[in-house]
Amino acid sequence: MFDFRTRRKFILYTIMTILFIIFFFPLLYMISTSLTPNEDLILQNMSTIRAFFPSEIGLKNFSDVFQRMPFGRFLFNSLFIVSTTILLGLVVNSMMAFGLARFNFKGRNLIISTVLALMIIPFEAIAVPLLLITNRLGWLDSYQVQIIPFIANPFYIFLLYQFFINFPKELEEAAIIDGANWYQIYYKVAMPLSKPVLASVAILHFLMQWRRFLWPLMVTRGPSYRPLTVAMQVFFGEYPRLWGDIMAYVAMMTLPVVILFVILQDRYVSTVARSGIK
């Protein structure tokens, strides 16, 4: 007979393992299907446990994806759009936050309240007029239409502002005595000290931009500027669906990010905590 402690542990582990299976099987299914080179075998196995242990294994689906579409181009588009937005966003948002937190000037409170109010506006509420604006600017089907509107972000400004406002004044006063100007204080004192919060902002920005779907769907046409999320549309119009190829595409898009976040998980966990209410 188990004692109370062992029984409790047993129950907890059982529940956690069942949940583990629920959370993990779709991804495992994606991986095993992507590695099944034979489309008939995929359809034959699709409803059984054998789907997870295909009798044939190969990378044919992956090479198919590269052959049938410019996958490398889509990957580059996604990476370029995401990384440019994050880098410019870190600079622009932290400068704004630093300015609001470290200076007193007329209109400061108005700007702060405006930034807070803007946090309520979801992207979907401005997508339609933004489509009109970017169309008038002649930006449709380009990189900038997917980058420039998403650089400044009120929520990230707010997160950084909260950090800078608690930043001890003595540090910058010491820097000023040493002859530093405000740009040097921002760049050499404030930036290095705010690495954790900058990392959080970068993570949130990454997730937002990497997963973006509605906007690139509306503003891109051909393959030239399409990110991975929207380029996947090619598969949706085809019948019968080639599930092996689809899964290979999805796996290549998903797994690197999953692995990255598993490695950076402590940072991710603290980022989510920061984005929630304290």
């Binding site: 929207v230 999805v250 998903t254 976040f261 598993v262 991710y268």
Partner: peptide, 14 residues
């Protein structure tokens, strides 16, 4: 938490 870092469009297909 792994599903939360995936792109919705990708997991929707799966």
């Amino acid at each position: 938490f792994i599903p939360t870092v995936t792109a919705m469009v990708a997991v929707a297909v799966v």
